[in-house]
Design a protein around this nucleic acid. Structure first.
Length: 289
DNA sequence: CACTTGACCTGTCCGC
DNA sequence: TGCGGACAGGTCAAGT
């Protein structure tokens, strides 16, 4: 569920909370969640200062002072939550979704030089933390293949068209979800941006007009920016670096709104399956040509 | 090669 | 109430 706006929200929180701190201890309960954390990983981590927290697509990068970086993918249910000396939980006025930590979904715990902890929680164990030499990150297959950042200044509608043409014989929703086409788009913002541009998710890329691609380019960037502004989308799991929910779903137009009226025309929103995903559309606004 | 489907997991919800 | 099955959705491997 964490897509670009959610991961970016976590990044901003971690950047503020972690930069300058030193890792003093690390533990993990699940080998799958930290696949290369064998034997001497502690010696590479303990004593390392956190220099900078960045993001590429849906992946978080924590650069350390030791020429190593932590790479973290939250996949669907991953959380990275910072806890200082007050281990607050649900019901606290800060709107925290998670309770006292660690809990049973905690996979990795970092202890920091100020006495705080960073918890990597992941109910479904799809996510992971890896330690890699910083210089080797560009050589990792994913980073070689991943498409452009949709919010970067040079991401024009023409670039978007060119990227989408790589998947011209598939439907537009599958192409949007393909990380090698455009970075960071997942199910929520695919549905929201297609509604915004009035495009049916099943239309083949080669049949989408330039005018529609232009509209999709604007709709996608608008919805990603709005969601970042609202702290992302929380359904069940996603929280920011302080455990707080995101508020975008309050503003969603179609996602998880089947049975409700389309905000634009009042037609009842439908849910179907496209590209193997639950897909939300307005049958009046989004028609196949 | 281009594209689609299934596997990876666990918790929740729905129908019987 | 318990139980089976569908579903949630990011990514990669396997299948067509």
């Amino acid at each position: 569920m964490p897509e670009l706006p959610e991961v970016e929200t976590v990044r901003r929180g971690l950047s503020r909370l972690l930069e300058g701190l030193v890792i003093t201890e690390v533990s993990h309960d699940n080998p799958k969640s930290f696949p290369n954390a064998e034997a001497d990983v502690r010696s590479f981590l303990i004593g390392a200062e956190i220099v900078e927290v960045t993001r590429r697509a849906k992946v978080l990068l924590i650069e350390l002072s030791t020429k190593y970086s932590l790479i973290i993918h939250l996949k669907m249910t991953g959380q990275l939550v910072y806890r200082g000396d007050t281990n607050f939980g649900a019901g606290h006025p800060n709107d925290s979704l998670v309770g006292e930590l660690p809990d049973k979904s905690t996979r990795v715990t970092f202890t920091l030089s100020n006495g705080a902890h960073l918890y990597f929680n992941d109910q479904r164990k799809f996510g992971w933390v890896r330690l890699v030499p910083t210089a080797e990150i560009p050589m990792i297959d994913f980073f070689k293949r991943v498409g452009p950042e949709p919010l970067s200044d040079d991401f024009t509608w023409q670039i978007m068209k060119e990227r989408l043409q790589r998947r011209k014989n598939t439907n537009i929703k599958a192409a949007l979800l393909d990380q090698s086409v455009i970075a960071g788009v997942g199910n929520i913002y695919a549905d929201e941006s297609l509604w915004g541009a009035k495009i049916h998710p099943s239309i083949l890329v080669k049949n989408v007009t330039d005018a529609k691609i232009k509209a999709l380019h604007k709709a996608l960037r608008d919805v990603l920016r709005l969601s970042i502004d609202k702290g992302g989308s929380t359904d069940k799991h996603y929280v920011d670096a302080e455990g707080k929910r995101g508020k975008y779903l309050t503003f969603a137009n179609v996602f998880r709104r089947e049975g409700q009226p389309c905000p634009r025309c009042g037609t009842i929103i439908e849910k179907s399956r496209v590209a193997g995903r639950g897909t939300h559309t307005c049958p009046h606004c989004q028609k196949l040509p």
